[in-house]
Design a protein around this nucleic acid. Structure first.
Length: 418
RNA sequence: GUGGGUGUAGCUCAGGUGGUAGAGCACUUGGUUGUGGCCCAAGUGGCCGUGGGUUCAAGUCCCAUCACUCACCCCA
């Protein structure tokens, strides 16, 4: 038997209905806030991700699905969406008329990590990005949007964490101070952190090893090192979240794994997913568009982990499964032929009908109707055809009425509709 | 990449110290000559994850491998 690829999964009927619902709620909310859908390719030139995400990140270093195509060009299955959206924004010169653009996209991403709860090698993200707005209010809008989406989906127990990572002006100063602090405590840190010290000192801040956390307790805080412009930006973010009534916690350990983030960064965390606590994450990336060859353009955005959101959402898939409106039990061949025509006609009118094609007994067909949770069953056999009447049974109340075969579809519509 | 746990029927799981595989649910049929859910009965369904080894004999013991899962790591 051929099995699916490790870390990949099928989303089957019975689970997919909740996904469809979440997707429709998200689309509705984004559209209400003026976001336009953008669909981007599932593969890009490797270079795009390497440059945007950062050569030294774990994603680029060891998680990407990268391979040469038949011509030998290096291509990569997208590990995230932001890079592609930026590429598209630049390539189509979407900044030319009005640089302010708001996009959302939904689709699969690929990272070759060790699978575990809430972590798959093909996983789904909902992304939203705002280009061309330097104001901190764009960051606030995104967080507000997330809070609204999550409460509409009944995800209890989630918390918004925010932080600022500074800008190219203040971050180097902070990094230097941090590296110096780390160097003074290397004997107390785990080997991973010692290794991270020079390559990516920010990562040491969110190490989960207790000893490291303790050693980093008094580490310099980025928030104390922000330049005046970044500090003001962060102040506005906090103040407007407050006035919008969006609860949040400032988490100075919140660090992003992708190099392109600047200033505001945020994460929506949950306790119910084990170690994979981030259901959504994002932040500002003012330098990325320029770095990828576009104009100097501010931007901010987020990604939601769809798989994780579906697990956290307080939704019962049963509530979204559509049951047949009608099961047609035909008892002989001629009735079956008639039933099939009715079934087709009903389908075009939005009434879901189903029937049996195996010539089963009435008892067996009734059983199937019950198992399928059909609201009504239509019974037609030789007796009914002779009388020119079919029997319509309400499966819940067990009441039965007769319906003339003549123009049956039109006659049944008012009887079946809610 | 590193650890721990688990792989037996479609599903959930039993199968001390080795002796050729079971239950519940589901499914099919019948009890009810043409009426579902409850009940009763019968039946279908397994290379016991895969490959090797030990043994007269392996679901059971040993080794390897794959998969699932949880954690580290990383992130959404």
């Amino acid at each position: 038997m051929i099995q699916l690829i490790r870390g990949f999964k099928d989303i089957l009927p019975g689970e997919v209905e909740v996904w469809q619902y979440i997707e429709s709620v998200a689309r509705g909310l984004f559209e209400d806030f003026g976001f336009k859908e953008i669909r981007i390719p599932i593969m890009e030139k490797t270079e795009l991700f390497a440059r945007s995400i950062g050569e030294d990140t774990d994603i680029v270093e060891k998680e990407m699905y990268t391979f040469p195509d038949r011509k030998g060009d290096l291509i990569t299955l997208r590990p995230e969406a932001t890079a592609s959206i930026c590429r598209s924004y630049i390539q189509h010169k979407m900044y030319a008329d009005d640089p302010v653009k708001k996009f959302y996209t939904i689709g699969p991403m690929f990272r070759r990590e060790r699978p575990q709860k809430g972590r798959y090698r093909q996983f789904y993200q909902i992304n939203a990005e705002i280009f061309g707005v330097a104001s901190p209010l764009a960051d606030v809008e995104l967080i507000f949007l997330l809070k609204n989406l999550f409460s509409r989906l009944s995800t209890g127990d989630v918390e918004a964490h925010i932080n600022s990572l500074g800008c190219p002006e203040c971050r180097p100063v902070f990094k230097a101070a941090l590296t110096e602090y780390i160097s003074s405590r290397t004997d107390a840190l785990c080997s991973d952190c010692v290794r991270r010290k020079d390559r990516n000192p920010l990562r040491v801040l969110d190490c989960k090893v207790p000893a490291c956390r303790e050693a980093m307790e008094d580490a310099p805080s980025i928030i104390d090192h922000l330049c005046p412009a970044c500090a003001q930006h962060f102040d506005v973010v906090r103040a407007s979240l407050d006035s919008l009534g969006v609860p949040f916690v400032v988490n100075k350990r919140l660090v992003r794994g992708l190099d392109y983030y600047t200033r505001t960064t945020f994460e929506i965390q949950t306790r119910s997913l084990g170690a994979q606590s981030a259901v959504a994450g994002g932040g500002r990336y003012d330098g990325l568009v320029k770095m990828l060859g576009g104009p100097d353009m501010p931007a901010t955005g987020f990604a939601i982990g769809f798989d994780r959101l579906a697990e956290v959402a307080g939704l019962d898939n049963q509530d979204f499964i559509r049951k047949p409106d009608l099961y047609i039990a035909a008892l002989d061949e001629e009735s079956g032929a008639m039933a099939f025509e009715w079934l087709c006609a009903l389908g075009t009118q939005g009434i879901q009908a189903t029937m049996d094609f195996e010539g089963r007994s009435l008892k067996s067909q009734m059983k199937r109707a019950g198992r399928n949770e059909a609201r009504f069953t239509l019974i037609v056999g030789e007796d009914e055809r002779k009388k020119g009447l079919a029997i319509l049974r309400n499966m819940k109340t067990r009441e039965q009425v007769t319906v003339p075969l003549d123009n049956l579809v039109e006659r049944m519509k008012p009887l079946i509709q809610y």
